[in-house]
Design a protein around this nucleic acid. Structure first.
Lengths: 200, 200
DNA sequence: ACCTGAACACCGTTCAAGT
DNA sequence: ACCTGAACACCGTTCAAGT
């Protein structure tokens, strides 16, 4: 494993992308602590100073990982909510379950995405990424309101309360305060409750 | 600041407690990254190896900090919910606000408390501490059910959904995804919604 | 424009030795 | 039982120098 040094040209050409790939792999397999500039560089076979051309510092790399995570989450949510064959409330449940499963299956990444520390200058990008990930759920709520399935009211606010509930549940599961095999049950329960409050 | 070396006896006598105090101070003032064994030891004026008698390693110290945090949260929740002059639903709202304010005012500590990584052998203690902190809210829900203000049903489950919602909202505020000055508004809104679903 | 190698200041952790 | 000092292996970050 130590001597995997691939034969790279002096100019790697694709280093930024590969740095993020390897970083995410380490993050998921071994946790944030192990996501170190030097270890990533080692794995790729590049000097430990090379990454600095692409990321100002370690935090900058972690931030980029989080942004990437949000766009992965967005894809998952879209997949779970776009199928218009299925009735809207069911799609909402599916989206909620997709969210929860993504969080549970990528615990370390998800925790990073919801961590409070990030470079000040990346706060804007981060917010955009998370709002974008959140948008499929927002769409469902707006559709629900149009179809008179969900009560009228600021959809953004309604959506954020829903998002917060799911975020809380998954955080508790990842912290092992709720058993993993009760996750689906909890999510569906809270969705029922959510709808009881907002349904016509 | 560097030469504050107090005149300690060789045996400090109270080191464990002081380590935790200084650690929490650094955590709140400068963030987790800065909570280092060596910095804490320096501040107290003891050798950097001394803490190892009291905490197996850095994670063990962070875990203890989290447990301490839960008991602080418990106090805050009790204070906000015990005043029996006030009607029960109002006490529930107060407890929710107390929870949110604790989380926002002690962001780094709160994040640590809800972080997924902790020594395997401390998982039990951590779970107990968090359940204990949660108990005042559980009590309120049970009282509410007895007084026929809140619907019957597993109070633990109802409470966990409420807890999750609050946890999610505060996580989003601490991650600056929701503006801090909208915190109270969000909390009260979600409490309204919570009660709409569970009230008689 | 991109990467290397050496240097620096910081960590956590261990362990023989001191009190 | 508790603490010290030195040692070790690891970091992140910087910067002159190489391609």
């Amino acid at each position: 494993m130590k001597n995997m040094k691939k034969t790279h040209p002096y100019h790697h050409g694709n280093l930024r992308v590969e740095l993020l790939q390897v970083a995410q792999k380490i993050l998921l397999e071994k946790g944030v602590e192990e996501v170190t500039i030097r270890e990533i560089a080692r794995e790729i076979g590049v000097s430990h100073a090379a990454p600095q051309r692409h990321f100002r510092n370690r935090q900058d790399l972690l931030d980029s990982l989080a942004v990437q995570g949000f766009s992965q989450l967005e894809k998952v949510l879209k997949a779970g909510s776009l199928d218009s064959e299925v009735p809207l409330l069911e799609r909402l449940n599916n989206a909620a379950l997709s969210f929860a499963h993504f969080a549970a299956d990528n615990a370390a990444l998800f925790e990073l995405m919801n961590s409070s520390k990030c470079c000040d200058d990346k706060l804007g990008v981060m917010k955009e990424a998370s709002e974008s990930a959140f948008s499929p759920i927002l769409e469902l709520i707006i559709s629900g309101q149009e179809q008179k399935i969900i009560q009228s009211g600021n959809p953004l606010k309604i959506g954020l309360v829903l998002y917060a509930t799911l975020l809380g549940i998954t955080t508790m599961v990842n912290g092992e305060l709720i058993e993993r095999d009760r996750l689906d049950d909890f999510v569906l329960d809270s969705m029922d409750h959510f709808l009881k409050g907002y349904r016509y």
